[in-house]
Computed example of a mutant assay.
Amino acid sequence: MIYFDQAASSFPKPTTVALAMTEAVNEYAANPGRSGHHLAQRANKVIEETRKKLQKMFRNESTNRIIFSLNATTALNQAIEGISWESGDHVIATSFEHNSVRRPLERLKLEKEIEVDYVRPGENESEWTSIISRKLTEKTKLVMVTHGSNVTGEIIPIDLIGKLLKKHKAMYCVDASQTAGVLPINMTEMNIDLLAFPGHKGLMGPQGVGVLLVKNHVTLRPISVGGTGSYSEDRKQPKVWPEGWESGTLNTPGIAGLLKGMEEVEKKGLSKIFEHEKMLAFRTINGLTKVEGVRIIGPKGEEDRLGVVAFFIEGIDGQEIAMILDQHYDIAVRAGLHCAPMTHDLYETTDKGVIRVSFGLYNTESEVDKFLVAINEIRDGLLE
Rank of each mutant, 00 (worst) to 15 (best):
D5Y: 06
T15H: 10
T15S: 12
T15P: 00
T15N: 13
A20D: 00
A20M: 04
E23Y: 07
E23K: 15
N26W: 01
N31S: 10
S35H: 14
S35I: 12
L39S: 08
A40V: 07
A40G: 15
N44V: 02
N44F: 13
N44P: 00
I47K: 02
E49C: 00
T50W: 02
M57V: 10
R59K: 15
E61K: 09
N64T: 07
I66G: 04
I66P: 07
I67R: 07
S69W: 04
A75W: 04
A79E: 02
I83M: 07
E86H: 13
T94C: 06
E97I: 14
H98W: 11
R103H: 07
R103L: 15
R103Q: 14
P104S: 03
L105S: 09
L105T: 07
E106W: 11
R107M: 13
K109Q: 15
L110H: 09
E111F: 05
D117F: 07
Y118I: 06
R120H: 13
P121A: 04
G122P: 08
E123G: 04
E127V: 05
W128S: 07
I132Q: 06
K139A: 11
M144L: 15
V145Q: 10
V151L: 11
T152S: 14
T152Y: 05
G153L: 03
G153V: 04
I155W: 06
I155Q: 08
P157N: 09
I158T: 15
L164P: 03
A170L: 05
A180F: 08
P184H: 12
P184R: 05
I192N: 02
A196W: 09
L203P: 06
V209D: 10
G210E: 01
V211H: 07
V214T: 02
T219Y: 11
P222W: 02
S224F: 11
G226R: 08
G227L: 06
T228C: 14
Y231D: 12
R235G: 12
Q237K: 12
V240E: 12
S247A: 15
T249C: 11
L250G: 06
L250R: 03
T252H: 13
T252A: 12
A256H: 01
G257M: 04
E264C: 00
E266N: 14
K268A: 02
H276M: 02
H276R: 14
A281P: 01
N286Y: 06
K290F: 02
E292F: 04
E292I: 11
V294E: 06
P299F: 05
P299E: 08
E303Y: 06
L306H: 03
D317K: 14
Q319Y: 07
M323R: 15
Q327G: 03
H328N: 15
I331C: 00
R334F: 01
R334N: 12
H338R: 06
H338Y: 00
H344S: 10
T349D: 08
R356H: 02
V357R: 04
S358N: 02
N363K: 04
E367K: 09
V368E: 00
K370Q: 13
F371L: 15
I378L: 03
I378C: 12
R379C: 14
E384F: 13
